[in-house]
């Protein structure tokens, strides 16, 4: 398995994506997944797709750019609602890679 590359996204790239970044990081450690993680603003996603080449995008905001990279909502990190399902989804993508 190659190193998982995770892109965390929110509107400003500084607030909720920071919480998501921390949450996904802890999740990967729990599952023994080797990872690299960065965060950015929604507007920067298309450029990060080229430069960072993420395995998965975890976002608290809708992303409009076209991409084959799976996009998973990170809102459960904020609200707590649906956190287990989200974890399963993220891990499923990362373990597949």
């Amino acid at each position: 398995m190659t190193k998982a590359r995770i892109l965390c996204v929110c509107g400003t790239g500084i607030a909720t994506s920071t919480v998501v970044n921390d949450g996904v990081g802890k999740m990967c450690k729990r599952h023994g997944i080797d990872y690299e993680i960065i965060q950015c603003k929604a507007l920067e996603v298309s450029s990060k797709l080229e430069t960072f080449k993420p395995t998965v995008i975890v976002s608290t905001t809708p992303i409009s750019c076209k991409s084959t990279v799976p996009i998973i909502s990170g809102i459960p990190f904020l609200s707590g609602v649906g956190a287990e399902k989200m974890e399963e989804d993220i891990i499923a993508v990362l373990k597949k890679d």
């Binding site: 500084i14 607030a15 909720t16 919480v19 990190f77 609200s79 707590g80």
Partner: peptide, 22 residues
């Protein structure tokens, strides 16, 4: 309403708010 200056230094703060709202 958040006035954020240094995202990583305030990670804890954001997480605390998320805990409070739950």
């Amino acid at each position: 309403m958040l006035a954020i200056k240094e995202p990583h230094m305030q990670l804890k703060l954001l997480q605390d708010i998320m805990e409070i709202i739950q």
